[in-house]
Every structure is written in structure tokens, then in C-alpha cells.
């Protein structure tokens, strides 16, 4: 029982990362009805930028902010140059194009920073917290990760529900034609959605890097986990992405704890398959609260 609790708690940090990456996928999906499979590639690229900044300045905060700016820019570039011009009748085209971007970004990162895994310096304590006379499988850094995720989710929720931009984004996602007829600059709104997703992905990348390592392919598996979480959450739902992201992290942590971490992708695949068969619209999708 003790180990079970440890495994569950140990999954929170990674669950939050999955949640953030799922959030990024949901943001682009809501904006443009495209699942951006290049999202982890963008996050990987901005994390390398963060690593370079960190090495240069020694400041974790500057690195994080730099990654966020780069993430926003990269999101805008990918949306504007790649996804916007895809011919709409070519339904497979958008999906294929995002994989093209992923391949190109991974190769570009390999060119610039090399193919080897690099350690990312840990900004805060990585030791387990001791409380009530026992050690918990949670570090101060895990708490920071959770904190960031909570801030981002709350901030995005407020943005979507309380601001004109949020309303414009939601209307554009649900019915772009009515949005245009209402005078909303739809193209710009979509691009902002991608920029936001880029920022969230960049944060996720910088947060996850110290706990694993960073290489051009190191986030591939995160894409599978995040996609699983986003789809089970309903793809349209921010709350769903976060809840299922954390849930996926916990499940994978327990599975890895009791068996072996190499089983995680198989478990994610099974979760995804079962969900797609039983409830393709997702837990939070469709008839439940869709607007955040």
C-alpha cells in the first residue's frame, strides 16, 4: 500500500508535464481543428534554445522566458507558413504536414545541437521532501512543476471565459464563418491560438527536461502520452486535457512502479485504444461542458 501511494504521488510531476503538452495539443485543435503532431518537436526545439540560454546566462528564469518567446514565435511560424496554406479539401494533408514539420525540426535540432542526450540543469532541489516522519516521492521541483501547470491552466481558463480574445477564439473554433461575419479577424485569432499552444508546449519542455534529458527525439514518447490524454479528455476541453494528463501520468507511474517503465507506451496505447472504442468523443467532449 505504501508503495502504491508513492507511485501515485511520483506520477504527479510527470502527469503535469503530460497535462501541459496535452493542453498545447488541445489549444491548436480548438484553434484550427488540426492536431499538431509537431508540437513536441517545437517544444524540443525551444527547450534546446532554453538550454543554450541557460548555459549562456546561468539563469533558469531567462531560459524559461526565452523558451516561451521562442515557442510562441515557432507556433506562429508553423501555423502561418505550413498549416494555413494547406488546401482544405486535402484532409490528410494537414496531418502529414505536421509530421513533416516534426521531422524537419528534429533534424534541425540535431544539426545545431547534435544527436546526443544532454542533461538539463535542475533549478531547484531534487531531493525528496520529508514530512510526517517519512520521505515522500515528491521533490520541491515537482511542486514547482505543479505550480506552473496550475497557473497556466487557470490563466488560460480566465483568458477563454473572461476576455474578448477568448470569446473570439472560442467562436472561431466552433464556427469560423459566423466569427468572420461578426468582424473577428479569424486568421489572426487562429495564429494567436498556435502561439499560445507554443508557449504552453515550451513551458512543458523546459519543465520536463531536468527530470529526463534533452535530445532531438527525447519527447517522442511524450507526444504519445499527451495525445492519449488529450483525446481521452475530449480534444476540445482544457480541463479534460489537464485532468487526463495528470491521470495518465499517475497510471503510467503506477504501471512503471509495479512492472517496468518500458511498458508505459504499451499501456498508453491500450488506454487510447479502449477509449477510442468505448467513447471516441472523450470523457469531457461533446455534451459535457465544452467551453472550458
Amino acid at each position: 500500500m505504501t508503495s502504491f501511494i508513492d507511485y501515485v504521488l511520483g506520477g504527479f510531476g510527470s502527469g503535469m508535464i503530460i497535462a501541459l503538452m496535452a493542453l498545447a495539443l488541445v489549444l491548436t485543435w480548438r484553434a484550427t481543428r488540426v492536431v499538431n503532431f509537431a508540437q513536441v518537436g517545437q517544444a524540443m526545439f525551444t527547450t534546446f534554445i532554453a538550454l543554450s540560454l541557460q548555459t549562456l546566462t546561468g539563469s533558469w528564469v531567462i531560459a524559461l522566458v526565452g523558451a516561451m518567446v521562442a515557442g510562441a514565435l515557432l507556433g506562429v511560424i508553423v501555423q502561418y507558413l505550413v498549416l494555413r496554406p494547406v488546401k482544405r479539401a486535402d484532409t490528410s494533408g494537414a496531418i502529414i504536414a505536421t509530421f513533416g514539420v516534426l521531422i524537419a525540426l528534429q533534424a534541425a535540432a540535431g544539426m545545431i545541437w547534435g544527436g546526443d542526450s544532454r542533461a538539463y540543469p535542475q533549478p531547484f532541489g531534487n531531493t525528496a521532501i520529508t514530512l510526517f516522519g517519512r520521505e515522500w516521492p515528491v521533490s520541491a521541483y515537482d511542486l514547482v512543476v505543479v505550480g506552473f501547470a496550475v497557473i497556466l491552466v487557470v490563466g488560460l481558463t480566465l483568458l477563454f471565459t473572461r476576455t474578448n480574445l477568448g470569446l473570439a477564439m472560442r467562436a472561431t473554433a466552433f464556427n469560423p464563418e459566423v466569427a468572420r461575419l461578426s468582424g473577428i479577424r479569424v486568421g489572426r485569432t487562429l495564429t494567436i491560438g498556435w502561439a499560445l499552444a507554443g508557449i504552453v508546449g515550451a513551458v512543458a519542455g523546459v519543465l520536463v527536461a531536468p527530470t529526463s534529458a534533452i535530445s532531438p527525439n527525447s519527447f517522442d514518447i511524450l507526444l504519445v502520452f499527451a495525445f492519449t490524454a488529450a483525446v481521452i479528455g475530449g480534444l476540445d476541453s482544457l480541463i479534460g486535457a489537464v485532468a487526463l494528463g495528470i491521470g495518465t501520468g499517475l497510471i503510467l507511474s503506477v504501471v512503471s512502479g509495479y512492472s517496468d517503465s518500458s511498458n508505459a507506451p504499451v499501456v498508453a496505447l491500450v488506454l487510447l485504444a479502449v477509449n477510442l472504442v468505448l467513447k471516441p468523443e472523450g470523457v469531457f467532449g461533446h455534451h459535457k461542458a465544452r467551453s472550458v
Partner: peptide, 9 residues
């Protein structure tokens, strides 16, 4: 919200 949408600018 639908009405707000109509004159957002």
C-alpha cells in the same frame, strides 16, 4: 456571448 461576438471590436 453570441451577442457580444457580434460587436467585439
Amino acid at each position: 456571448e453570441n451577442l457580444r461576438l457580434g460587436g467585439l471590436w
